[in-house]
């Protein structure tokens, strides 16, 4: 395999992960919030923590994307 091909393959592997990591950050953020609301605090804080952690999850997803674009700029 030539170097160019190899580099292309490496980037394909990295970017094939992007979409899924984005989706799972949102799901995990929501999950943590939901668990805190309903399991830890027993529904007293519902639904505020769910929404706060959902927001955090979405931000984490975008932060991943942002870091990736920074990496591309560096290369």
């Amino acid at each position: 395999m030539s170097d160019e091909r190899r580099e292309m393959f490496r980037q394909l592997a990295v970017y094939s992960q992007v979409g899924m990591t984005f989706a799972f950050s949102i799901i995990i953020g929501f999950g943590i919030g939901w668990a805190l609301d309903n399991k830890v605090f027993g529904g007293k804080t519902s639904p505020y923590l769910t929404f706060i952690f959902l927001g955090l999850g979405i931000t984490a997803g975008f932060k991943n994307l942002w870091e990736l674009t920074r990496k591309i700029e560096d290369e």
């Binding site: 992960q17 899924m20 990591t21 943590i32 955090l56 984490a60 991943n64």
Partner: peptide, 17 residues
């Protein structure tokens, strides 16, 4: 908090793929 969430996302997306 963001890093913790994205670390767990990493864990799940790698195994799920």
């Amino acid at each position: 908090l963001l890093e913790v969430i994205s670390n767990f996302a990493r864990l799940i997306s790698l195994s799920m793929r």
